[in-house]
Design a protein around this nucleic acid. Structure first.
Lengths: 335, 335
DNA sequence: AGGTTTTCTGAAAACGTTTTCACTATTCTA
DNA sequence: TAGAATAGTGAAAACGTTTTCAGAAAACCT
């Protein structure tokens, strides 16, 4: 059908073939003005015949928008990101945009990243320093934050989950039904807001049950399987007594369980272990993991929806907090 | 530092400030010609002062390349895609490109997708029909295929793993060391090439040990947890006798194990179960899964490297087959 | 029937770069 | 010292769209 030309057809060739001006082609393409039905028909035929599709760069240049949404994150790995990414992808698709992924493993985010490469940016916690963020804000560049509250002087919208109440449910459960009293908490990466709120929930649950907070029971698990395993190992080596572990997240929990077994402690008889997030494999590990379900996919999708509202200059929530839900399995000691 | 202008600076303003022509700015920006050291210095200062960065669309328009690589896949979920994506991301980053993700959940891939939006495309098995693929080939659009051999008339490069020998190792192991003779194979999604080769390996292992192939032992597991579980349930209901299951992949294997336990069969005492891929959680399920390690991340990275070679008109392998490796854990019956 | 609105279309400017070509000043060659 | 090569720079065309403006033809009014 279409000729074997190496260069794809341009709007001008289509115009010539249809016997009209480029303006008219543009109009039927975008429905931006009414054109006579017969003309439109001729144009459509010409388009088909040449297999024409408009050059995005040309369009971007004149319209000053790319129709792309960017997402900035630290790394794709872990059990946590895939569902989040999936939600983002779905949201982006629904809204008719394309998705540009930036994972800056360790490099600093380029100051001017995405400035005109994308129409808006979704930034995951910790992927960008405050200074850069502020620069975006000054330029009124659309951004929504994920699992991170913005600094007060650049009030970007953000979406996250109810970390504190989730954590509270978790440790209250271990205290109330399994009578645990010495519960260790494994912190996430430094300055990770999720970790901060989970620790708050942990402390409040302790307090509500009149259990004194013991700093010796806090260690760093990095939301990471091996780091968490090492942390537990060290605790054991140091002779710290504990009968339960709130691992921070599910990834860390599997590391904890492995380390505990390795050391000859049985889970959940000797020590209860709980995670956070309810990633897909949590139900399959041994013992099946008691955790809190975070609507990860929904977080991603919601973020996109917020961003799109901003892009359309529609009013948009300043923050959304998605609910979490306790899911009891067996690693806490339940049957 | 930079003025609070709403519109970012253009190359022309930089040129004015530095007292040179736009051409010169372009030259120091791209190092495309030698410019006097003092001039270059002045230009760099002007660039910094205005916080200038070139508009990608303008550049794309004139250079006719986007500096983006696209990846087309069906869905981000499953344990398989994240590592693959991670590898792709790493490769893309290394090569200095950006990554555009297209997941077409169920919609057909637009015929002209990516034609000028990306410089090249990585297409995962089954994400594009042959007709569209052929159209790309006619237009000499750079593509590399993932886990799929191209049709003979469009010999695009492809990368995949040694499915056949991996499967062979797996079932030979079950035959030789665990004396299994009635081994079911759960096929993947229809026309999935990985599944095809794994079945070949399965059959050859059978044959090598003089075990007759029994069609009753073949069912469809879809490389999916619940589909695989259902398949096993049905086999059990139909009274089919078997003492081992090669589940097709790891996702399916967890479904199989769950279904077996549900039915009161113990794994691995009553029946051996093995998967394929060695996704991260495989070691943590109960019992730990015997499987074959496929270098998934490496597959993604290699694909990008091939694609980049094509983009640079360097010679590039027509196919690369990454080796697989047996990893013995306990679901087969080993200790 | 004459004026006014409406409908449809085209010319041309703009978007922000890269690149070719030509030109000047400088350095080299013999 | 004259001519030739070289280094450094600028003017302007090109990339492929969208959009503003204005004009022609057709339809509508009274």
């Amino acid at each position: 059908m279409s000729p074997k030309q190496h260069r794809p057809a341009t709007i001008i060739e289509v115009a010539k073939l249809a016997g009209v001006s480029p303006s008219t082609i543009s109009r039927v393409l975008n429905g931006t003005a009414v054109v006579a039905p017969e003309t439109a028909q001729r144009v459509r035929e010409a388009i088909d015949q040449l297999g024409f599709s408009p050059h995005p760069a040309a369009r971007q240049l004149v319209m000053n928008r790319t129709n792309m949404i960017g997402v900035l994150l630290q790394e794709i790995s872990g059990a946590f990101f895939p569902p989040m990414l999936k939600g983002i992808e779905a949201g982006v698709r629904e809204a008719g945009y394309d998705l540009l992924i930036y994972s800056r493993q360790n490099e600093q985010a380029s100051v001017r990243f995405g400035e005109h490469s994308v129409d808006g940016l979704i930034i995951f916690a910790g992927s960008m320093d405050e200074a850069s963020l502020r620069r975006y804000y000054e330029r009124e560049f659309p951004v929504v934050l994920l699992h991170q509250t913005p600094p007060p002087d650049c009030p970007y919208p953000f979406v996250t989950v109810e970390n504190k109440s989730g954590a509270e449910m978790l440790v209250s459960h271990m205290i109330e039904v399994h009578h645990r009293r010495r519960i260790v908490y494994l912190q996430g990466p430094e300055n990770h807001e999720d970790s901060h709120w989970r620790e708050r929930g942990y402390r409040e649950a302790l307090q509500a049950h009149n259990i004194a907070f013991d700093p010796a029971l806090i260690a760093s698990g990095g939301f990471d399987e091996v780091e968490a395993g090492d942390a537990i190992e060290n605790l054991l080596l140091d002779g710290v007594e504990f009968d339960a572990v709130f691992a921070g997240d599910d990834d860390a929990a599997v590391g904890v369980i492995a380390a505990l077994k390795q050391a000859g402690r049985s889970v959940p008889q000797d020590v209860s272990v709980v995670g956070f997030d309810d990633v897909p494999f949590s139900r399959y590990i041994s013992p099946p993991l008691t955790t809190v379900r975070a609507p990860i996919e929904q977080v991603g999708r919601t973020a996109v929806q917020l961003l799109v509202k901003c892009l359309r200059n529609q009013p948009c929530e300043a923050e959304v907090l998605l609910p979490t839900e306790l899911v009891i399995r067996q690693s806490c000691g339940c049957e």
